[in-house]
Nucleic acid binder design. Structure first.
Lengths: 197, 197
DNA sequence: CCTGAAAAATTACGTGA
DNA sequence: TCACGTAATTTTTCAGG
């Protein structure tokens, strides 16, 4: 288990561009057989690197409101809650949480009902202010592109190599660079769990 | 050609959630045969509503820089050029152009090299200023969700019904509500083309 | 990870509402 | 025009090495 090699990245790039390309053809491009590509894709899914197969829908052609960027300033403690609520809201396409504590949502809203939407979506008690901007155009590059690619250990932050380990806990996948990080994380997690009960 | 019905939207929703669900099973859910679903998906692709089949990659697990939101203020005339350049840049995942003339890019950059990146990516001559914010978290909802769904005529903005027409010009698909909008758009487009030569 | 066979899914095509 | 069945083709999955 673990550590992406260059072949994995190339497979991801091709799938990002066309998720329906047959594994055999991807295989030709990366010098692998079809089944071998299939195996890798499955591993990438299990490792949580491929979250899902999906379609990119051109919402510009479907009018369900006006595309806007809403910037919300909320109480510091309510960031997670706000992001979760926004993510669940129907008209929202993306949510960004920045390090300075603001949340940006890219959504399609009915003209003139923006304020109403914000008040019903974000908790009024924690909302300090907001700013809305019309979006003229959106471009999305599903490309994987980049130079460095490596998994990072959730315990120590180091790169995960072939000696690494992976575990799924409560539906989330965690990567570790070594058994000791793995067990340390696990201990902390279990303590945390007990505390929560 | 033209106009999405409720079945199309349900198909889109399912594909957005899992683009690998067999057409036959989607068909069961929407009361259609497998081939019928296949036909509709093909039409949705030809109409440009499905832009592409892709995978949602968890980039949080791949470290290739720090995720940031860069807000660029550029000369009004250079907006398109800036968006295009950003879209082409490797590390960029999203680009938003807002109505007030700023451009936001969501990218993964190397720490400490942000200024350098901006200067090499955006044309320095048109750049008036920028602002960078660290991104803590990103959520993407590929769901189609929404209430109103209809194609809009690129010429007059009205809803495109069954009488509508569709044409692919230079790789882009345009929808029209009626033949007269179609020919009017086409005239304007041709005039524009001549001017460009 | 490969090859080769079985299983499954997709597409093509003729027909009918 | 749209959808259905059936058949042909492609793609994926599963063995064994």
């Amino acid at each position: 288990m673990s550590s992406l090699d260059e072949t994995d990245v190339r497979i991801l790039e091709r799938l990002a561009e066309n998720a329906r390309e047959p594994f055999a053809r991807i295989g030709e491009a990366v010098d692998l057989s079809g089944p071998a590509v299939s195996d890798r894709v499955q591993r990438l899914q299990e490792a949580g690197i491929i979250r899902q197969f999906t379609v990119d829908v051109d919402r510009g052609q479907l009018r369900a409101g006006v595309p806007v960027l809403v910037e919300l300033t909320v109480e510091p403690g309510a960031l997670d809650e706000t992001v979760d609520r926004l993510r669940g809201a129907e008209a929202v396409e993306h949510v960004f949480e920045t390090a300075d504590g603001t949340v940006l949502a890219h959504a399609r809203l009915e003209r003139g009902k923006v304020r109403e939407w914000i008040e019903s979506t974000a908790d009024a008690d924690v909302l300090r202010g907001y700013d809305v901007r019309l979006v003229e155009r959106v471009e999305w590059s599903p490309s994987v592109g980049g130079t460095e690619f490596a998994l990072t250990c959730v315990e120590c932050g180091n790169t995960v190599t072939n000696e690494g380990e992976t575990e799924r806990i409560d539906g989330t996948i965690y990567h570790f660079c070594c058994p000791s990080c793995h067990s340390r994380f696990r201990e902390r997690y279990e303590t945390f769990e007990e505390g929560a009960t």
